[in-house]
Structure formats: structure tokens, C-alpha cells
Simulated scan of single mutants.
Amino acid sequence: MLTTDRLILRQWTEDDFAPFYRMCSDPDVMEFFPSRLTEEESDAMARKIQSLIQERDWGFWAVELRGLDKFIGFTGLHMPKANLPFAPCVEVGWRLAKEHWNRGYATEAATAALHYAFEQLVLDEVVSFTAQTNQRSQAVMEKLGMSNTGENFMHPDVPDDSTLREHVLYRITRSEWQEKYTSHFE
């Protein structure tokens, strides 16, 4: 479990599955994904995330508001599929329910996840990627101190005819992280 001033990043529970499904069926939340998830797909994804955290002690943690025990989405670290042109790697990612956007929660939670990546896992770098048209996520990446690599790629899991196929790739190294955040966590 990781904590920030306003958030708790923790292992998933069965109580998270219903709000996760509502989030994954919201057209605004899923705007930059090829499709919304069915309840079965959403539950399967939550169970997979839960099992990966159980195996490794890290992953896409469930995020809740401190003191409210309210699931608002997920943020954390993941090893994406090997079919990406920059794999193997570890990515930082997030997905929050729409009513929790524009409050800095994604940046706050992802900052904690990056701290874990560089200080606990001692990774050399972390990446993040999204559809080229997803300006909101790119803004979070930039707030985190990540840099656009200029190495756009066609996501192999997005249909060829989709406007979401072209993705941008952002990256931050451990030394860049330490330069930006060392005093933040002292």
C-alpha cells in the first residue's frame, strides 16, 4: 500500500469491481480506448490486475480517497505486452472515474507510483504511452517530468483503421526523477 496526502494506492477488493465496471463503461473515461468494457471484461481485468499485484507486490493499484474508503480508479506500474516496439519495459498508467478528473489525483498517484518504481524497484526508466489525441494524459505525463520521446508508434492491439492507433511514447529515467523529486520525498 502507498499513501499520499489525499490518496491510498492499495490491492484490489471485490468491492472495487462494480465501480470499476461503471468507470470502464463510461464513454468519456474510455474515449481513448478502442472500446468500452463489458462487465465480464471489466471483472476479468480487475482480477488479472489483482493477481499481478499478489504475485509481485506492485502493479496497477486501486486508488481510493483517504478517509472515505471510496474507489476512484487505478494508478500504478505495469509490464505491458511484449508486442510493443519498446518492450520489455515498465509503464506508469492511470484511469480515474470522470467525477475525479481535474483535481490532480492522477498526477499525485502516479508520482507515488514513480517513487516506488525508482526507489523500491530501482528501475532505470519508466515509460508511459497513450493515443496521440489524448491530450489530458499527455499533460499528466509532462507534469510528472516525463519527456515525449518523439517515437510515435502504431499500437498493435488497436485496429488498423482506428484514429486511436497512433500512440505517443513518454519516458523518464531514474536520474531525471531524482533531479526533479529528491527534495519532494525527503
Rank of each mutant, 00 (worst) to 15 (best):
E99R: 12
I49K: 03
F32W: 10
T133G: 14
P88T: 13
E119I: 01
Q50L: 08
R36P: 00
A106W: 01
D57N: 08
L52K: 05
D57P: 00
L121R: 13
V92R: 00
D57Q: 09
Y105G: 05
P34E: 07
R95L: 10
G73L: 08
R10K: 06
A110F: 00
F20N: 05
T38Q: 11
G59H: 04
L114R: 01
L37I: 03
L121P: 13
P80D: 04
D15S: 15
A139N: 14
Q11A: 14
W94E: 02
H78T: 04
C89Y: 06
D15A: 15
E91C: 12
V63T: 09
L68V: 10
L123Y: 12
C89K: 03
H78K: 09
S42Q: 05
P34A: 08
K98M: 09
S51C: 00
M141K: 02
G73P: 09
Q138S: 11
S35H: 12
W61V: 04
D28V: 11
M30W: 08
S51M: 05
E41L: 03
Q54A: 15
D69Q: 15
Y116S: 07
L84I: 02
A82E: 15
L144R: 02
M141D: 03
A18P: 01
T111C: 10
Y116C: 06
A44D: 15
A139K: 12
S35Y: 03
A87N: 13
R47T: 10
D43Y: 13
M141T: 02
G67S: 11
A110Q: 01
L52T: 02
P85G: 01
G93E: 01
I72G: 06
F33W: 13
D16E: 14
A117F: 02
I72V: 14
D43G: 05
V127E: 05
A139Y: 09
E40V: 09
D57V: 00
F71K: 12
T75I: 11
Y21V: 09
S42A: 13
F17R: 11
T75D: 05
T130S: 14
A110E: 00
S25V: 02
L121I: 13
A18E: 15
K143M: 12
E64W: 11
L96G: 05
R47P: 02
F86C: 05
G76I: 09
A131E: 02
T133E: 13
L84T: 00
